[in-house]
Design a protein around this nucleic acid. Structure first.
Lengths: 222, 222
DNA sequence: ACCACCTTGCCACTGAGTGGCGATTGCTTT
DNA sequence: AAAGCAATCGCCACTCAGTGGCAAGGTGGT
């Protein structure tokens, strides 16, 4: 599933698939570079395809939309997250939310090939200033959450009508997005370990967010 | 702000604006009807504009996209929510999350003109089966959350670097979306009071979602 | 070496969204 | 009440994302 991570294991993919893979990576790399240098909207798909020397028809066989190529590193991580949730041993002692936290942390650490962190940084900043990309990103996250909910039901025997597992997933997504925001604001070179740190910090802030009260300054009360 | 709600107060809008308003409502009504009868994608804007007898140019002066006209009832409620958050008296005894809950409940009750509940039901179900609409909906919700965060900072004197208020807003959005889902599945005629009930139920499930544990059925552990 | 098939490239097409400009409509001032 | 003003509307032409069809080329198996 995680198209960029699992290269070492497996009986070596066929040549045809490796070619496809190289095209995909070239498209993502070039797209992120062009979209970052100029604007997302001002770069046409024709131009991107010219650079990579690929027809527009081929582009749409690899990605479903212009937005998707920009969010590929982000999507790859969510796919790895589903894999983790599916395969990770169950520990009945940990709460669902803790299990989810373990799975995201594990997922981001499987992405440690090449400069995934740099690409994720590019697409995070891109999403922050491009409505179309942000919308696509949130939609994809929603789809992933529904897939994860299925896994939770299957592996942890939960009531399908219970709102709590779904809320836990929504809270996970929210915390991770806050972590991405914090991480993308760091001035240093992006690393997976910093992202892990920021993710833990965001999770740690969750309980307090339910009980937090305001301080009601000199502002009039109505 | 809430384009559909505040009709009674105000010194009667100018005729020109009322005409504009009627065009807007005709577009929303017809769009929801057509999108529900057939598919969102199979209804072209040209067709919609023909029905309402409005040029496509005018459509785009009223709505920013094809998706927006379908989500107008939903967006109107969020705009009313911002208004409530802005004007509601502050009660230092209640937590931020409780304040937010009060504001959504109040917002949906201001929408009690005409059959807003029916329109909201249509667009909720539409969003559930149309990726483009769901994406737009989530993006709009994100923009609203950022606007609400500004209000919280201004009125409740919170630290701009504190993650907790933002997380509280994300959790609010998640709970409300769960409530919408539950509400849209009800077989009866949609009412605002049922939506309020489902919203309270979703909020009540939040604390439990942080501590919930699985039951680890006969499923193997790895 | 040959065949079957997957993949690619090209072409033409639909439909969303934008900008310009002249015409119309509602508001205002004298 | 008439004229002047500004906002709005409708029409036209255009760009660009995304899709389907079909022929040509490369790939894997025999």
């Amino acid at each position: 599933m995680a198209t960029d991570s699992v290269s070492p294991p497996g009986p070596r993919p066929t040549l045809r698939e490796r070619k496809k893979q190289r095209t995909r990576e070239a498209l993502v790399d070039t797209a992120l570079r062009l979209f970052t240098q100029r604007d997302f909207d001002s770069v046409t798909l024709d131009e991107l395809c010219d650079r990579v020397e690929v027809s527009k028809r081929t582009f749409f066989r690899t990605f479903a939309s212009k937005e998707e190529v920009a969010m590929a590193p982000y999507e790859d991580m969510w796919k790895a997250f589903i894999d983790e949730l599916e395969t990770r041993p169950v520990d009945a002692k940990r709460s669902i939310l803790q299990v989810l936290q373990d799975a995201v942390l594990a997922a981001m650490r499987t992405m440690n090939t090449g400069d995934w962190a740099h690409r994720l940084l590019s697409c995070t900043r891109l999403a922050g200033r491009t409505p179309a990309i942000e919308a696509h990103c949130l939609y994809f996250c929603g789809v992933t959450v529904r897939a994860a909910l299925d896994v939770l039901h299957r592996r942890f025997g939960l009531d399908p009508h219970d709102l709590r597992p779904r809320l836990a997933l929504d809270i996970l997504a929210a915390a991770f997005h806050r972590a991405l925001e914090t991480w993308a604001d760091r001035p240093q070179d992006p690393t997976v370990e910093h992202l892990a740190t920021d993710t833990l910090a965001a999770f740690a802030a969750i309980p307090g967010s339910l009980t937090l009260t305001g301080v009601a300054p000199a502002d009039q009360g109505g």
